[in-house]
Nucleic acid binder design. Structure first.
Lengths: 217, 217
DNA sequence: CCGCAATGTAAAAGCCCTTCACATGGGAAT
DNA sequence: ATTCCCATGTGAAGGGCTTTTACATTGCGG
């Protein structure tokens, strides 16, 4: 734990990049002590400024968390879009990557995930926040669209519903078993496998032939 | 909003039932402002005692929340067990009730649900807490057991996995769309229907004939 | 009836949040 | 290059929450 002026070296009166520093501090602190145990003053100390300085960049503590959540959704969307890759090389393989990518994000970026889904940020705090969060769902929705298109046109389920199902299942697993948090439950198998099995069963229920190998493990 | 000495009438120096009063206060306050916006001092005020009084009953604020969570798991287990009713009159109908009961609990008792799943209570804060929370899962597990038993013995999936899948899906839906919270997302259909459809698809994927009418609505 | 233990209170130290008046200096306009 | 503006940071202060400690009250068992 070094102290004060991290990274940007030897600052004088002005920090130079306080806003970014605060976001990084928030991520560190949330990862360490959860979104609840995170304090505005801590972030200021972490950045080496007085407790009042952050107010020049954020209306209050919640605004900072909301910004972290927004950035989280951006990174999340990027990760999902990259994993989905427009359904290449084939829809099933891409869909599989998509789910894993979701869990992977929750595990790799617990601080972002916390801020996004567990910090109790009102989605309408910032209209930008709501929109950014929608964009992540758009990827899921597009994937569901392509998935549903594989089914016979007759009795095809609404893609939106399928997207919501997959999202719920994935979020449920991430939320209950995702991180190694002491607060979470133990599991007889890794969450990725749990999810993969669930999705395979669900897709079979939709009428999709088990195309992708389930036992690649 | 009446003030002080609620219910138990005209107290003198001693409250007489402070512990219970604190739990009720916590429930009110959590329901109102979320688990984060809940303060120990508020609860004391609500009960009409000094800010130090609660410390005679709980080590600290977190201990109170943990107790609320514990009571929540008890009520939750009772609700689930009642809905499941040992699989009567038939497994599918009971299973359907079970899922609805889960969502219903999340909606009817948002304060309990928050304390149980969103307040970041370390499950091992109190060994009793962990055990109580396990008991709720036991009901789900038993239901999954009976459900799986309907399948042909060959290639039968592990009941534990099925229970985890259903739990995750249900919790995911409850968590993302469950309450009317401003913080939650809008949905093109009621969460109960979303869950019912998901479960039907999942069960079909398991190889269960669609026994129960899906369109009872 | 007495005295203990349980329960509640008051006061105080420490921390956090937030605001306000003031300080500093980076950079645009001249 | 100089000047001045305003974005950015500081220090101090008010108010609230948390938690501890010494003290007050009282129910209840012996």
């Amino acid at each position: 734990m070094t102290w004060g002026r991290r990274g940007s070296g030897e600052r004088g009166y002005h920090h130079g990049n306080l806003k970014e520093a605060l976001v990084r501090a928030a991520l560190e602190l949330i990862a360490e002590k959860g979104p609840a145990g995170f304090t505005f003053a801590d972030a200021a100390r972490w950045a080496g400024v007085s407790p009042a300085a952050p107010y020049r960049h954020y209306r209050d503590r919640d605004a900072l968390i909301a910004d972290v959540a927004k950035r989280g959704f951006e990174a999340f969307t990027a990760a999902l879009a990259k994993a989905w890759d427009d359904g290449r090389p084939d829809v099933m393989a891409a869909f599989d990557r998509l789910g894993k990518s979701y869990l992977d994000f929750a595990k790799r970026e617990p601080a972002y995930y916390s801020a996004m889904f567990e910090a109790g940020v009102p989605l309408d705090a910032d209209p930008q926040l709501r929109e950014t969060s929608e964009r992540a769902f758009v990827v899921l929705r597009a994937a569901a669209e392509k998935l549903v298109a594989l089914l016979p046109a007759k009795g095809r389920p609404p893609a939106l519903m399928v997207a919501l199902h997959i999202w719920s299942m994935t979020h449920g697993i991430a939320s209950l078993f995702g991180r190694g948090d002491a607060a979470r439950r133990a599991l007889p198998m890794p969450p990725e496998e749990l999810l993969e099995a669930a999705v395979l069963i669900y897709l079979r229920g939709l009428g999709l032939n088990e195309g992708v190998a389930s036992g690649r493990s």
